[in-house]
Design a protein around this nucleic acid. Sequence first.
DNA 1: TTAGTTGGTTCATATATTGAACCGTTGGTT
DNA 2: AACCAACGGTTCAATATATGAACCAACTAA
Lengths: 269, 269
Amino acid sequence: MSSAAKALKLLSHFSVTRPEIGLSQMCRIAGRDKATTYRHLQALEEQGFVEQNPATRQYRLGPAVMQLAQLREATVPRKEAARPALAALADATCETAHVTVLSGTTLYGLCESYASHHATRAVIDLNTFPLHATASGLCALAFGPADLLAAAVTDLHGFTDRTPTDRDDLTALIHHTRTTGFGRANRIYEDEIEGLSAPVFDQTGHFAGAVAVACVATRFTPALERTILTELTTAAREITRNWGGTIPDAVEAAWASTDTQETTLEPTP
Amino acid sequence: MSSAAKALKLLSHFSVTRPEIGLSQMCRIAGRDKATTYRHLQALEEQGFVEQNPATRQYRLGPAVMQLAQLREATVPRKEAARPALAALADATCETAHVTVLSGTTLYGLCESYASHHATRAVIDLNTFPLHATASGLCALAFGPADLLAAAVTDLHGFTDRTPTDRDDLTALIHHTRTTGFGRANRIYEDEIEGLSAPVFDQTGHFAGAVAVACVATRFTPALERTILTELTTAAREITRNWGGTIPDAVEAAWASTDTQETTLEPTP
DNA sequence: TTAGTTGGTTCATATATTGAACCGTTGGTT
DNA sequence: AACCAACGGTTCAATATATGAACCAACTAA
């Protein structure tokens, strides 16, 4: 791995639950030498990607990322074009909704929308979504470029005892995703969360990302599932349109067949 | 310079007017070797900081920055806390308003607000603001940490024939900024733009950034200047409050004295 | 005092970066 | 069609650059 990549990777260790990280702590998290980590953080700080909290000396993300994000959104407006549909989705399902975007073989979170209805919510605290263990990831594998599967199987980490940890389990889930048009993560990432997702496409005609609902498992009923699936198709269509794409016929057909069945297919991984 | 820093620097060459950059073009802009640039772009792409436009093969900012920005804003909410005041400022002055934040010795743009009133507007297309040649920069030099001046004088690039290009001219402008409480960039960055700025402070009690108005020079009248100065103080106070800081007495005093004078001091650089 | 943190620094070692020269394509011109 | 220039991408020897064990100084808790 290039030195630049190593430095960049440090940024991925920040999260909502750990927004500030000290030098020693970062060494442990990243598993690298202290001197190296320090120099990398210095380089990042020089460019404004991190800054030190003057009170605690801990590092946190810097202002440069704000500016780059503004520019990215001005160049490729994805977030703004997804937000209304996402809010409507969260509102209609009373559960947490989010959108992911694919770049290369990595699935990034773009934005979330939390429903105000329930006190307990699914909180999205992921920077990159594991392809094999999330509903969005399954969508990517099912509808995205073929090389994703190869990337995914290099690390089939088991998050719960239902996580698909070998290639056959995973391909079964992918197949299910393709035939129904929905990604389904029934407690395969977290024990308490049921995830459902639908693919989104952009102007190139290729898979661009996914829109998903993360539902607290205890609230998950067949009725809610039907609602989520219906609303997911609406949201996926709207976001796809806003991103300048169209839903492929195969996906629309899959959705149509699932709608008529109105049954919960629950494949055992 | 570290290899990581070199790679990071590539990102700063993207701008609103140049959102996509090809490999060869990037080599020319960055003044580095093609192989090196290519590897750096690869590393950046691997981490999602850039992506290739599939149609043109040109590179543009990637989705990872969106996510980092979301996290940064969740950690240190600056943008959201500045936006309303900024919009009000742009609205009241009918000119372009923006907010900058200081990190280390670099002044970054945080957000802009454009007034809908006029067809010709000042467009903010800067990623980092030169300290010696912008109103915000002068605020930083006047009210920020002492080491900024040393950093500024290392590159006193002359943007217009009014840009202060030696240390004495610059210190005179800084002094003027300190006594009036406003940064003033009368055609020292662009010939057609008059800039006025006021400092903003955060919970550490130190200078955190500046709020500024960039006014098309032909519209700049003493009456408009008075309006801008008044609105600037309002905006600076509100943003400072939202950022958890307080305006130092010295600055408030400077503003008060400037208000009563109501004269246009125009120092010749 | 001691022992264990922390953020930050040094320097010899050797590993990872560098750039000139090199491909194969593409798109426009003659 | 042949040509040329510019493009994105690749190779490999030379060496500049990253690396990490050991080392500070400051701080905290026991």
